[in-house]
Amino acid sequence: MHYDASSCNGCDIEVLACLTPVYDVERFGVINTGDPKQADIFLVTGAVNDQNKEVVKQLYDQMPEPKVVVAVGICACSGGIFKDCYNILGGVDQVIPVDVYVPGCAARPEAIIDGVVKGLDVLEQKRLRLQQEKEGSK
């Protein structure tokens, strides 16, 4: 799933470009869903501000465990060029835990795909940990 916090559109369009014929992540079984309840990986572009921090938090809370957050673009990592702006709180990690950071302005589609693949490893580890905890509690 993808949500634009306060990005300039550059990274959002690159996230969408990953779906199109030149990059075509769907052949690897990756799809962009609009529904947080069906999502495993949460791509966030752009920094957080006062208006959208609740939205980001809510979307994150609606996703089922295990889940992975990928911060796409330098704004989502640290605030980037907008760090000094009065309405920017900083990177996405100010609000929700971030697992993978993808730098770049704008992040290239190759970098985004790489970030998602790294996210898949993290997802697998989290899934195993959840399973072990479940077996341990039996």
């Binding site: 208006q51 702006c85 920017i88």
Partner: peptide, 8 residues
């Protein structure tokens, strides 16, 4: 939702 205040 996307206001950054970059004019400032």
């Amino acid at each position: 939702y996307v206001h950054r205040g970059l004019e400032k």
